[in-house]
Computed example of a mutant assay.
Amino acid sequence: MQIKNLMSEDLITIDKDQNLSDALKLLRKHNISRLPVTNNKELVGIISERDVANKLGSSKAESMPASRFHVSSVMVKDVIAVPGTMRLGEVADLMLEKGIGSVPIVDDNGMIGIVSKADFTPLANGIIFDKISVKEVMSKEVVAVSSSDRLIHARRQMLDYKVGRVPVIDDDELIGIITSKDLMRAFINFRKNVPEKHQKSQIKEILVEDVMSSNPSSVSKEMSISDVSKIMVETGYNGLPVVENGDVVGIITQTDILRLIAKLES
Rank of each mutant, 00 (worst) to 15 (best):
I3N: 04
E9R: 02
L24M: 13
L26R: 11
R28S: 14
H30M: 00
I32F: 00
R34T: 01
N39V: 05
N40T: 01
V44L: 03
I46E: 01
S48W: 02
G57L: 06
S58A: 12
S59C: 05
S59V: 15
E62Y: 10
E62C: 15
S63V: 14
F69W: 05
F69A: 03
H70Y: 07
V76C: 03
K77I: 03
D78I: 07
P83G: 11
R87N: 15
G89I: 00
V91S: 08
V91D: 07
D93Q: 14
L96N: 09
E97L: 10
K98H: 14
P104G: 12
G110E: 01
M111F: 01
M111D: 01
K117L: 00
P122M: 10
L123T: 02
F129T: 09
F129K: 04
S133C: 06
K140N: 13
K140H: 09
K140M: 07
K140Y: 12
S148L: 05
I152T: 15
R155V: 13
Q157I: 15
L159G: 11
G164W: 10
I169E: 01
D170G: 06
I175S: 11
G176L: 04
T179A: 12
K181H: 13
D182M: 04
L183G: 12
N189I: 05
K192N: 06
N193Q: 12
E196A: 13
K197A: 15
H198R: 14
K200F: 12
S201H: 10
K204P: 06
V211L: 03
S213W: 04
S214N: 14
P216V: 03
S217E: 02
K221A: 09
S224E: 09
S229P: 06
K230G: 03
M232R: 04
V233T: 10
T253D: 04
T253H: 01
R259G: 00
K263Y: 13
